[in-house]
Amino acid sequence: MNILVCITHVPDTTTKIKFVDGKELDKNGVQFVIGPYDDYALARAVELKESLGAKVTVLNVGKQETEPTIRKALAIGADEAIRIDAEPSDAIFVAHQIAHIAKQNSYDLILMGRESSDYNGGLVHGMVGEMLGWPSVSPCMKLDLEGTNAKMQKEIEGGKELLEATLPLVAGCQEPIAEWKIPNMRGIMSARTKPLNVVEAISVEGAISYNSFDLPPERSSCKFFEVDQVDDLVNALKEEAKVL
């Protein structure tokens, strides 16, 4: 079985986000990691490799700066990597790159996070599925294979659905599909020599453009009430905030 895992290279979840002149992310002091949802996808792929036997290829659309993140995915257990040498400017752009690679290979399963934690489009899995004519499911909380039959659990508002589809398919993953894996020393050593192929991007039309960024407005300072002043709080919610 061949599994493709698509990963993003994003700021660590604890990062305080700042921008340079409102135009681009201030990368100063920011630690970049594998996208937290992608990490679940990768962990599930490695679990499937361990239980059923599979070759796991990891793919990232990014410039050279993402290679330490890709090496980390190799250390976690992917067998080889592809880096598409371009900025991941938009979901349509990224989806076309992935579909292009998928058409040249014979993957049974394409896994990725439900969304990236930087641009949060949540689109790439569905787009790749559509481009390849494969089923796609997201957010996928559980994925079990029996031959070419996949049983999945999808989160919906207030509950979950149990779904079934036939491989090949695309899934956008989230917890608790697998436990995050931490690379061990052997993994880190072997990752250095695993193949990492750099591929040129194909050109794509229809991408959206990012003009500027801003931060949520700061809240004015918190107004405190004593424990026996709950009536005053309720009154403030009603008369001042007008939310009751």
Partner: peptide, 30 residues
């Protein structure tokens, strides 16, 4: 083309320009 998670009315119609939530709720992008 598509923009997801739009949080406000368009600031321009041509080109269609909207604000969307990014960095998982920590920021907005136009």
């Amino acid at each position: 083309s598509i923009a997801t998670n739009v949080v406000d009315l368009p600031s321009s119609q041509s080109p269609l320009t909207v604000k969307r939530g990014v960095f998982t709720g920590k920021a907005f992008a136009t």
